[in-house]
Computed example of a mutant assay.
Amino acid sequence: MEEYEVWGFTIRQSASGKNIWPNELKWEATRRIREEGQSAGDVAAEIGAHECLVRKWSVADRRSRGEKIQVEGPAFAALNIECEAPPIEPPAPTRSTQTGFGRILCGGVAIEFPLGISQDDLVKLVQVAGQLQ
């Protein structure tokens, strides 16, 4: 097992190469975020960890302190489409990497469309995609 030091703490690596972070280092990382106002990204870069991991430690620390963690608004949005017009045939799929195109993934169907498409035509494309599944 390899070892190295971060902030005076010994970090060990498992046989698979993953870092084994001591709890004391996690507490120090979250303290720096909480008390010093450092970002999770800055702390992660300093210790050589992934930012998502440091954010996970921070959330766990906040929860252990009794803080309620909530996200404003819904996590997902429903897409309801109502259209009286019959669906139109979608344009042939393109593999354009131009910035003038958008893409919507609906299950196994990808809808590519020009960004200047009208809302009504986009609704028709999504309806057609729904029928293809």
Rank of each mutant, 00 (worst) to 15 (best):
N80S: 14
A15L: 10
R95Y: 11
A92C: 03
I111C: 07
P87L: 12
A44D: 04
C52L: 15
S58N: 13
A110H: 03
I20Y: 12
E84G: 15
T99L: 09
V43C: 01
D61I: 09
V109E: 06
W7H: 09
G37T: 02
A29K: 00
Q70A: 10
N23D: 12
I20F: 08
P22K: 06
P22H: 05
E72P: 00
L105V: 02
I88H: 13
A29V: 07
K26F: 14
E82M: 13
S16L: 12
I20K: 12
C52V: 13
N80P: 07
V59I: 15
L79W: 05
S96H: 04
K56G: 02
K18C: 13
V6M: 15
A85D: 13
V54K: 11
K56E: 05
S39R: 00
I69Y: 02
R65Q: 04
V59H: 00
P90Q: 09
A40E: 08
S58K: 00
F9C: 13
G107C: 00
N19Q: 14
A40I: 04
A60R: 12
A49C: 11
K18R: 14
R103V: 11
Y4Q: 09
G108D: 11
Q98I: 01
E89Y: 06
N19Y: 14
G41M: 06
A60E: 15
W27N: 13
E67T: 01
S58D: 15
N80C: 12
L25P: 03
P87G: 14
G48Y: 10
I88P: 07
I11N: 06
A29L: 06
I111M: 01
P90N: 14
W57F: 13
R62K: 15
E35L: 10
R95T: 10
N23Y: 13
K68V: 07
R12S: 06
